[in-house]
């Protein structure tokens, strides 16, 4: 069973020989970027560089996926926001939104989806990057991409501060905006599907229960998430950061193929709550374990994830590019050895 077969079989709900080790979020490494002779700031703007860099994590470490894009600004940019890729940064800085679309409450109602959203911003570049990475390593690994969740995207096109307050004060207005965001996300996800991705992760990072109450999650965040997952025909993963134990059942109600949680989730409890068949991906700390931990910490953490009952060992967020190669190797080695023993 190769990595691709393993991951796809897992998504289908079949038995696999061992827990796979992959991600639906960014996982490029500095090692890969340097080897290719690229610069981090450029890989977001060039389909070939993006695809090459993303494929290098599999090629160098056997990481069991190929995921593009690398940044989180694709949808917001396509909707009309201006992004900053920090072209002159010395170290690694991820692109951010420089110019928002909505500047005040009054402008919220005016947000609409451009007719040709599929051709805006970097969506065409993304289609090309997906095509390229699929051509390159698509026989060996599953190819993934990600979109933002409606609330997280809304928090990019307007001030998060205002969005949060309005979620409380004027929930109807926010619900309306989130529905538009859901439609935009669906357009983008469909383009990725057409380009050939096997799975799509929906990253609803802004709606963690560290920030919003489970009650608001259910009434406001869940409906547009359900809409998005319903429209995705590829396998889908719903990722939410932070403390998610109180909302994992709601996450399942969004009806993704799998849910993804980070290190603040108690996965043993989540497993108990959701039962043995639920696909739960997680949940190690990609910085404090994989980047700044030693090999031993990496190994014990991988074993703990598996013992707690994850269906796939998967990071809590993007893998930070400065990850030491020996830690990547330790992660793969440990999951390969220990992942079949459950």
């Amino acid at each position: 069973m190769n990595s691709r077969e393993r991951v796809l079989k897992l998504f289908r709900g079949g038995e696999v020989d061992r827990v796979p080790c992959f991600s639906g979020m960014g996982n490029v490494t500095e090692t890969g970027i340097n080897k290719l002779g690229y610069r981090f700031a450029n890989i977001h703007l060039d389909a070939k560089q993006m695809a090459d860099t993303a494929a290098s994590t599999y090629k160098l470490f056997g990481y069991e996926c190929g995921v593009v894009p690398v940044d989180l600004c694709v949808e917001a940019e396509a909707l009309g926001c201006v992004i900053n890729v920090y072209p002159n940064a010395e170290g690694i800085l991820y692109p951010t939104i420089k110019e928002k679309l909505v500047h005040n409450e009054g402008e919220m109602d005016g947000v609409s989806i451009p007719d040709n959203l599929a051709d805006k911003g970097r969506i065409p570049l993304m289609r090309e990057a997906i095509r390229l990475i699929k051509e390159d390593i698509g026989n060996q690994v599953a190819i993934g991409s990600y979109v933002l969740g409606p609330f997280t995207l809304a928090g990019q096109i307007m001030e998060l501060n205002d969005l949060l307050k309005l979620s409380f004060k004027k929930a109807d207005k926010v619900a309306k905006l989130l529905d538009v965001m859901a439609d935009a996300i669906i357009v983008v996800a469909r383009e990725y599907e057409k380009a050939g991705v096997d799975y799509i992760t929906v990253r609803e990072m802004g709606a963690t229960s560290d920030v919003l109450s489970p009650r608001v999650f259910k009434s406001l965040i869940l409906p547009p998430l359900q809409k998005v997952h319903k429209a995705i025909s590829a396998y889908s993963v719903l990722h939410i950061c932070g403390k998610t134990n109180d909302i994992v059942t709601f996450m399942m109600e969004a009806n993704p193929t799998a849910i993804s949680v980070e290190q603040k989730n108690n996965v043993a409890e989540t497993r108990k709550k959701l039962g043995r068949d639920a696909l739960i991906f997680g949940n190690f700390d990609p910085y404090n374990v994989l980047v700044s931990g030693d090999e031993e910490l990496v190994r014990t953490t991988m074993r703990k994830c598996i013992d707690d009952g994850v269906s796939a060992v998967w990071p809590g967020c993007d893998i930070w590019p400065t990850v030491p190669p020996k830690n990547m190797a330790a992660m793969m080695d440990e999951v390969t050895k220990y992942g079949g023993k459950r």
Binding site: I92, L93, Y94, Y287, C317, W320
Partner: peptide, 8 residues
Amino acid sequence: MMTTSMVG
């Protein structure tokens, strides 16, 4: 707020 920015 993001891992991706704290390393500075």
